[in-house]
Design a protein around this nucleic acid. Sequence first.
DNA 1: AGAATAGTGTCTTTAAGACAATATGGC
DNA 2: GCCATATTGTCTTAAAGACACTATTCT
Lengths: 241, 241
Amino acid sequence: MSTHDDTGHDQDFIPLSVDIAIFRLNDFGGLQVLLTQLADRPKDPHFPYPNAWSLVGGRIRKALDPDDEAAAHRTLMRRTGAQVPYLEPVRSVGSATRDPRGWTSTTLYFALVGPSFGWTLKPGDDIKAIEWVSINDARLRAMAFDHTRLFQLALERLRNKMSYSLLPAYLLEADFTLPELQKVYEQILEVEIPKKTFRDKILELDGIEETGKTKMTRGAPAKLYRLKPTKVPLLFNKNLI
Amino acid sequence: MSTHDDTGHDQDFIPLSVDIAIFRLNDFGGLQVLLTQLADRPKDPHFPYPNAWSLVGGRIRKALDPDDEAAAHRTLMRRTGAQVPYLEPVRSVGSATRDPRGWTSTTLYFALVGPSFGWTLKPGDDIKAIEWVSINDARLRAMAFDHTRLFQLALERLRNKMSYSLLPAYLLEADFTLPELQKVYEQILEVEIPKKTFRDKILELDGIEETGKTKMTRGAPAKLYRLKPTKVPLLFNKNLI
DNA sequence: AGAATAGTGTCTTTAAGACAATATGGC
DNA sequence: GCCATATTGTCTTAAAGACACTATTCT
């Protein structure tokens, strides 16, 4: 048996969607996620969550999406008008109960964008508002469908993976300093990391390189680094924290 | 927008399946995975992979499966007649090309079973044979659909996760000794671990407890341990290796 | 000059690993 | 007793962390 079974009953076709937890840092270094507010839909009295907030998401369209990652990119493009630099699948959730109208399945992604991500937030017929929201915002605790749990899964994956990878670099400009990078780790993981240890481990990883430029701050100027052009963000063999 | 979009077109319903990489150890400690051989289906000339080997899998059935994990359990039960002690989702893959007949999506799981997993392998109309196969077996390199890649993803997840968790305990009897556990790590990760380091880290984790019994070997008897009854297999804060 | 921050060096503490010592069974 | 293996203890080495020192820029 496999994916494919011609004995499959017609009634077993299931609506498939993607939902994306897209993260950025606000001007003070706080982590935010992009939420959309579902419209009223007066013409659709069975729509279960009018006015509720949800992650960015949308149905997979066979004709438009060669694969599920393409569906995620298309959905983000539709709402933000820009291409995200980092996108990875977290997991899929399918059940009879996550949508009161019946069996559905969604694939959850998480995305990271830097401060100069060139988005233009685009509501639409089905979306009343779209907004960057702090990860402590109360709206995240009462979202449509199972999106509260999806958001938690995405945040957990982000925290987990950043403790052994250079992922947080995608939340900064392409050129960044080590003190900036350290602050991102400390802010999101809510820990303090000894400066020496942090620098030694990051540099030993050999996943970033000097740009030759420096960035002025209030004190001494800091060297600017960039990610080396590898496909995958480099992984620590031991945890950073 | 969300999982749910009443503007979704009928032609965007997509066949959904689960595929499971179920692992066990053979009598010599080698890792094996359960494969099925797809039947001929002479009545179905469009079936793309007659006689090919594949992971255990099947269509999700709305009427039978409250959620995707239930579908995985039901599919495993159908082929092995037994309940697996450990099952976790790896990721979903959906694309227009993974099945030549059109857009499909599957959720990949991996499962671990111990030596006394009470299975009875059950072929069927659509399955010609079902067999435990060493992870080096050539059939794994030429499976139906994208199952070769799915298998690699599952194996990668297993190797990755066992380096910071007690997962390998699920490949042993409920009561196991530390030398047995160490051999599983070493076998699957293909590394040697210093005995003292291994024991110290495993015990410090506090995820296993002594049963009070011992197991005779060729030399001195070894203490038997069992997993403490926590839901989640305990995670190391630093990698084991 | 003084404040603020970047980057480095040194010493202490902690963890990992090598290796030996002891213990317990089967034969 | 002898062999094989389990389990623990000790010492060495390596990594992590505390902390101080130097360097650079701005005011």
